[in-house]
Design a protein around this nucleic acid. Structure first.
Length: 307
DNA sequence: CGAAAGACCTGAGTGC
DNA sequence: TGCACTCAGGTCTTTC
């Protein structure tokens, strides 16, 4: 459920608190949350303890904190993915540690803000944290979004994020490459929107919202769309993501929250997702939910014809 | 190589 | 009350 807007809310909340802080201690409460950490590169806690956080960067739904310190830590980052239910909660050191789903706790020491804690809380453990090495971007542009912070890590990204495409809000995102990618895909357009190797940051909610906005059925063959239609779709994606970000993201329950534990408001602005049986905001026809890739697709059977 | 299916997880909700 | 089942879903791995 955390898609680009929700992850960006977390990144922007984390950035001012953690940038410049030193990791004083690391507590791993559930090692399953380190699934994506390559133990061959070193122990997670050892690599992280003593390192200094240089920034908070995001590409699509991936979030990372470039590290500095001695030789072992420079050129690395702690990279996080929220999965379905992950949260990064900023807390004071004396906050009770009784969170049932707290998996990892980072104890930080900030030169100005003093001691603070980042709790990685994740009910379903689809999310993860890892210390990974940074690699240069292939196009020489910045690795991801980070409030315009510059430095040696600006044109780098974690090795495990290297195969993830840029997101539609990234200035270096290539519209031309996106049009070309859709043209050669032999599958439905929704599947391509969800393919993080083609365009990142979009999940089930914003895919359904974007397709509704341009009256496209998700099973419409991607390769049959004209370049003009693809650009319309991309504009809709950007519009939906931007509006959701402005409203602090979408949340249906307490699963998705910002670094202070608060929920966003975009749920009230949804036109398609989760609205099965309710009237289409455009034409009044009852919306439909269909099974799709072990989840649901929500659309208007009148506005969004299958081909 | 690309497309699709399966695995990974927990907890809320539903039907019997 | 309790048990079996379904649903939620992002990404990595496996299969074809």
């Amino acid at each position: 459920m955390p898609e680009l807007p929700e992850v960006e809310v977390v990144r922007s909340g984390l950035a001012p608190a953690v940038t410049g802080a030193v990791v004083a201690a690391v507590e791993v409460l559930d090692r399953r949350s380190l699934r994506r950490h390559d133990a061959a590169s070193g122990d997670f806690e050892t690599l992280l303890t003593g390192a200094r956080v240089e920034a908070a960067v995001r590409r699509g739904k991936f979030l990372w904190l470039p590290l500095s310190g001695d030789e072992r830590r420079g050129g690395r980052a702690v990279v996080g993915h929220l999965g379905m239910s992950g949260q990064m909660l900023l807390r004071t050191p004396d906050h009770p540690g009784d969170d049932r789903h707290a998996r990892v706790r980072l104890h930080l020491e900030h030169p100005e803000h003093g001691e603070l804690r980042v709790d990685f809380v994740d009910q379903r453990i689809f999310g993860s944290l890892a210390v990974d090495r940074l690699v240069p971007t292939t196009d020489g542009e910045t690795g991801g979004f980070s409030d315009g912070v510059t430095g040696e890590w600006a044109r780098q990204l974690p090795s495990q994020v290297a195969h993830i495409a840029r997101d539609p809000l990234d200035p270096a995102f290539s519209e031309r490459a996106f049009v070309a990618a859709l043209a050669k895909r032999d599958t439905g357009v929704k599947r391509v929107l969800l393919d993080q190797g083609v365009v990142s940051g979009i999940g089930n909610i914003y895919a359904d919202e974007s397709l509704w906005a341009v009256r496209l059925h998700g099973e419409h063959p991607a390769s049959s769309l004209s370049p003009r239609r693809v650009r319309e779709l991309l504009a809709a994606v950007r519009d939906v993501l931007g509006k959701a970000l402005a409203e602090g993201g979408t949340s249906f329950d307490a699963q998705y929250v910002n670094v202070n534990g608060a929920s966003g408001y975009f749920e009230h602005s949804l036109n398609a997702y989760g609205r099965a049986g309710k009237p289409c905001p455009r034409c009044g026809t009852p919306m439909v939910r269909e099974a799709f890739m072990n989840r649901g697709s929500h659309f208007c059977p009148r506005c969004q014809r299958r081909r």
